[in-house]
Protein backbone atom coordinates (compact mmCIF):
# COMPACT_ATOMS: atom_id res chain seq x y z
CA UNK A 1 0.00 0.00 0.00
CA UNK A 2 1.29 3.48 -0.83
CA UNK A 3 0.33 6.71 0.96
CA UNK A 4 1.17 10.00 -0.73
CA UNK A 5 2.02 12.65 1.86
CA UNK A 6 1.61 16.39 1.43
CA UNK A 7 4.22 18.71 3.01
CA UNK A 8 1.73 19.86 5.64
CA UNK A 9 2.06 19.63 9.46
CA UNK A 10 -1.32 17.90 9.73
CA UNK A 11 -0.20 14.99 7.55
CA UNK A 12 1.77 12.84 10.04
CA UNK A 13 -1.41 12.18 12.02
CA UNK A 14 -3.35 11.17 8.90
CA UNK A 15 -0.57 8.78 7.86
CA UNK A 16 -0.39 7.34 11.38
CA UNK A 17 -4.16 6.70 11.24
CA UNK A 18 -3.89 4.99 7.84
CA UNK A 19 -1.04 2.80 9.00
CA UNK A 20 -3.00 1.88 12.14
CA UNK A 21 -6.00 0.93 9.99
CA UNK A 22 -3.77 -1.25 7.79
CA UNK A 23 -2.24 -2.96 10.83
CA UNK A 24 -5.63 -3.58 12.47
CA UNK A 25 -7.03 -5.01 9.21
CA UNK A 26 -4.12 -7.43 9.12
CA UNK A 27 -4.46 -8.29 12.83
CA UNK A 28 -1.00 -7.00 13.77
CA UNK A 29 -0.19 -6.44 17.42
CA UNK A 30 -0.77 -3.21 19.33
CA UNK A 31 2.94 -3.27 20.07
CA UNK A 32 3.82 -3.05 16.36
CA UNK A 33 1.20 -0.35 15.79
CA UNK A 34 2.60 1.74 18.64
CA UNK A 35 6.17 1.50 17.31
CA UNK A 36 5.21 2.57 13.81
CA UNK A 37 2.90 5.35 15.01
CA UNK A 38 5.62 6.89 17.12
CA UNK A 39 8.32 6.53 14.47
CA UNK A 40 6.21 7.82 11.59
CA UNK A 41 5.13 10.87 13.59
CA UNK A 42 8.78 11.63 14.38
CA UNK A 43 10.22 10.99 10.92
CA UNK A 44 7.48 12.64 8.87
CA UNK A 45 7.41 15.69 11.15
CA UNK A 46 11.17 16.06 10.65
CA UNK A 47 10.89 15.76 6.87
CA UNK A 48 7.98 18.20 6.62
CA UNK A 49 9.52 20.72 9.05
CA UNK A 50 13.14 20.70 7.87
CA UNK A 51 13.61 18.49 4.82
CA UNK A 52 12.62 21.04 2.22
CA UNK A 53 14.32 24.17 3.53
CA UNK A 54 15.76 25.91 0.47
CA UNK A 55 14.47 23.19 -1.87
CA UNK A 56 13.80 24.12 -5.47
CA UNK A 57 11.82 21.06 -6.52
CA UNK A 58 8.24 20.39 -5.52
CA UNK A 59 8.19 18.17 -2.41
CA UNK A 60 7.37 14.51 -3.01
CA UNK A 61 6.88 12.32 0.06
CA UNK A 62 5.56 8.76 0.03
CA UNK A 63 5.06 6.00 2.57
CA UNK A 64 4.97 2.39 1.36
CA UNK A 65 3.84 -0.52 3.49
CA UNK A 66 4.81 -4.08 2.63
CA UNK A 67 3.57 -6.96 4.72
CA UNK A 68 5.66 -10.13 4.46
CA UNK A 69 5.32 -13.55 6.10
CA UNK A 70 7.67 -12.75 8.95
CA UNK A 71 7.94 -8.99 9.03
CA UNK A 72 6.41 -5.68 8.05
CA UNK A 73 8.38 -3.02 6.20
CA UNK A 74 7.57 0.65 5.88
CA UNK A 75 9.61 2.79 3.51
CA UNK A 76 9.53 6.59 3.66
CA UNK A 77 10.79 8.38 0.54
CA UNK A 78 11.30 12.11 0.11
CA UNK A 79 13.13 14.30 -2.37
CA UNK A 80 14.23 16.81 0.27
CA UNK A 81 17.76 17.59 1.38
CA UNK A 82 19.96 14.51 1.80
CA UNK A 83 19.54 13.41 5.41
CA UNK A 84 20.55 10.09 6.88
CA UNK A 85 18.93 9.94 10.33
CA UNK A 86 21.14 6.98 11.25
CA UNK A 87 24.29 9.08 10.91
CA UNK A 88 23.37 12.75 10.70
CA UNK A 89 21.22 13.03 13.84
CA UNK A 90 22.83 14.15 17.08
CA UNK A 91 22.83 11.70 19.97
CA UNK A 92 21.07 13.30 22.96
CA UNK A 93 22.75 13.37 26.39
CA UNK A 94 20.14 11.61 28.55
CA UNK A 95 22.06 12.14 31.78
CA UNK A 96 21.39 15.89 31.96
CA UNK A 97 19.02 17.38 34.53
CA UNK A 98 15.70 18.88 33.39
CA UNK A 99 17.13 22.40 33.60
CA UNK A 100 20.08 21.54 31.34
CA UNK A 101 18.33 19.37 28.80
CA UNK A 102 18.05 20.87 25.34
CA UNK A 103 14.48 21.12 24.08
CA UNK A 104 14.40 18.58 21.28
CA UNK A 105 16.62 16.02 19.59
CA UNK A 106 14.76 12.99 20.89
CA UNK A 107 12.68 12.00 17.86
CA UNK A 108 15.33 10.09 15.92
CA UNK A 109 16.66 8.57 19.13
CA UNK A 110 13.18 7.20 19.94
CA UNK A 111 12.79 5.85 16.41
CA UNK A 112 16.14 4.04 16.54
CA UNK A 113 15.18 2.54 19.88
CA UNK A 114 11.66 1.46 18.92
CA UNK A 115 12.26 0.03 15.45
CA UNK A 116 14.05 -3.28 15.04
CA UNK A 117 15.89 -2.53 11.77
CA UNK A 118 16.43 0.78 10.00
CA UNK A 119 18.13 1.11 6.61
CA UNK A 120 18.88 4.33 4.75
CA UNK A 121 19.91 4.98 1.18
CA UNK A 122 19.90 7.99 -1.10
CA UNK A 123 18.49 6.92 -4.47
CA UNK A 124 18.12 9.23 -7.46
CA UNK A 125 17.58 12.36 -5.39
CA UNK A 126 15.39 10.64 -2.78
CA UNK A 127 16.03 9.84 0.87
CA UNK A 128 14.78 6.28 1.36
CA UNK A 129 14.42 5.06 4.92
CA UNK A 130 13.07 1.55 5.51
CA UNK A 131 11.73 0.50 8.91
CA UNK A 132 11.39 -3.23 9.47
CA UNK A 133 9.63 -4.87 12.37
CA UNK A 134 9.28 -8.64 12.90
CA UNK A 135 5.70 -9.85 13.25
CA UNK A 136 6.50 -11.82 16.41
CA UNK A 137 4.58 -10.25 19.29
CA UNK A 138 7.62 -9.59 21.45
CA UNK A 139 9.63 -7.94 18.68
CA UNK A 140 13.33 -8.49 18.12
CA UNK A 141 13.84 -11.58 20.25
CA UNK A 142 11.54 -13.69 18.05
CA UNK A 143 13.27 -15.77 15.44
CA UNK A 144 11.96 -18.77 13.51
CA UNK A 145 13.77 -22.05 14.09
CA UNK A 146 13.83 -23.11 10.46
CA UNK A 147 14.53 -21.42 7.15
Amino acid sequence: MRIVVKPDPSEPRRVVDEVERFCVEHALSQNIIFRFQLSLDELLTNIISYGFEGATEDPVITVDIRLGDADIEITIRDNGQPFNPLEDAEIPDLSLAAEDRPIGGLGIHLTKSFIDTLAYERVEGFNCLTLTQPLGAAGSEESPDEH
Partner: peptide, 19 residues
Protein backbone atom coordinates in the same frame (compact mmCIF):
# COMPACT_ATOMS: atom_id res chain seq x y z
CA UNK B 1 -2.35 6.26 23.79
CA UNK B 2 1.03 7.62 22.89
CA UNK B 3 3.39 10.50 23.33
CA UNK B 4 5.99 11.51 20.76
CA UNK B 5 9.09 13.66 21.25
CA UNK B 6 7.05 16.83 20.70
CA UNK B 7 4.92 15.82 23.68
CA UNK B 8 8.03 15.04 25.72
CA UNK B 9 9.23 18.59 25.06
CA UNK B 10 6.01 19.94 26.58
CA UNK B 11 6.45 17.57 29.52
CA UNK B 12 10.03 18.79 30.01
CA UNK B 13 8.83 22.39 30.15
CA UNK B 14 6.21 21.44 32.77
CA UNK B 15 8.84 19.58 34.83
CA UNK B 16 11.07 22.69 34.79
CA UNK B 17 8.20 24.97 35.78
CA UNK B 18 7.06 22.84 38.71
CA UNK B 19 10.69 22.45 39.86
Amino acid sequence: RYISSAGLRALLIAIRKTN
